[in-house]
Design a protein around this nucleic acid. Structure first.
Lengths: 221, 221
DNA sequence: CTGTCAAGATTGTTGAACAATATTTTTCAA
DNA sequence: TTGAAAAATATTGTTCAACAATCTTGACAG
């Protein structure tokens, strides 16, 4: 994936591969990950795989059930609510205190443009990625590497929930204009307004995800 | 340690032991943790120890240097600033939005009383623990398990920095009265004032830690 | 149909092995 | 003596094979 992936240690790379398969939907929520067969399919030893599992459980993407194995985490309504609670808290505060000259603002702008470009060519997956980048950039306004890492984790978990959903267009495209407005408000030195707008926006997004989620779960039951 | 520790898997228990040795100062920042000797001293295999290492690196308590081994993380000024930035953001917001009837408030009160009791008997380590409990309870006001977990991680990292310091009395005792006041303000339905007080309090605490830290580092150089 | 029990599969953990990379020691030339 | 190159040693990265502990499955008896 990245340039220096070769440098990283095997369990790290493994974890990254599994992470990719998770957000790509190859591995599905609730699915059991057998040590033997996964190790086999990746051509690594069980021990290395177990190290990767430990990393991913810390990310909240996998769940350990002692003596039974590891399973892909199953997002539920409570976790979605929890994640949005955290997002409102962190993103809004970061935006509110964000300085108009902060370098992260440029990232936000770039993410917005990328999202529009992807939409124009019907690339909904690209829109989704760009949208995630936009929100990560908001968090960067707070200038905390620990917060950035925490947010990345939350975001990965949320993507797992998205995986259950079917319609990326519905999920991301309504917010492109709002994203652009938020950038504008922050550039205009009106961070409070930007934060308020983001808060409403997250409320709406949460409702959409919860609604789509309960439909999906219902369909499965 | 806890009742059902026996249930947990070995790498988890190992990680907990190492964590304890870290905050107790048995293992010191920068120290190299040799796989062979540590595995030997815990009477476990290298493989199990490595799984525990993975968990602890995710906590930010250990650092991997590829092909060189794992080292106890060395707190520096930047990390202390980062941690306090996160604390201000999360704790103040949690307090500000905290409902006066929230169960976490009772926890806060208990932690305050415990801190005073410990102080009266000169148990400074107890004062420190109680103080940490107090702040964890503040975060619980936000009703997010993910935030709680994140804060626990940050707190552990901060304790590592405290380990470098020598004077727990100076570090915790000035804040006991403020803690009590914060509880009072929240109970009185004045969360904004409580949050403001906490913010000032954290500023002061940060300065103390930074000052003590630079003294310590200077002394070592 | 239900509960029991043995057989089989999977996880939990270990120990040994070996390649790849660091570190230390030795050697040797300037 | 000093310093750099080279050899020897130790450590990490990763795999494999083994076995105990636990879980799952399926047959069987009632």
């Amino acid at each position: 994936m990245s340039k220096q992936d070769e440098n990283l240690t095997l369990p790290h790379r493994l974890a990254q591969s599994i992470r990719n398969q998770l957000i790509a939907g190859v591995l599905k929520p609730g699915q059991k990950l057998s040590e033997a067969s996964l190790a086999d399919s990746f051509n690594v030893s069980r021990n290395s795989l177990r190290e990767a599992f430990r990393l991913l459980t810390k990310d909240g993407l996998l769940r350990y059930e002692p003596n039974r194995g590891v399973f892909v985490a199953v997002p539920d309504i409570a976790s979605i609510i929890d994640i949005y609670r955290v997002r409102r808290m962190i993103e809004c505060k970061a935006l509110e205190d964000g300085h108009p000259k902060h370098p992260a603002l440029a990232k936000m702008r770039r993410a917005v443009e990328k999202a529009f470009a992807c939409r124009d060519e019907g690339n909904w997956i690209g829109v989704g990625s760009a949208n995630m980048e936009f929100h990560a950039a908001i968090v960067e306004l707070a200038d905390s590497s620990r917060l950035d890492a925490f947010y990345a984790q939350i975001a990965a978990e949320l993507r797992l929930s998205f995986g259950l959903l079917d319609n990326p267009e519905l999920l991301h495209s309504p917010y492109l204009d709002l994203n652009r407005e938020i950038v504008g408000l922050l550039e205009a030195g009106r961070p409070k307004d930007a934060a308020r707008m983001l808060s409403d926006y997250l409320d709406r997004s949460e409702r959409t995800v919860l609604a789509a989620f309960s439909r999906t779960v219902q369909a499965q039951a």
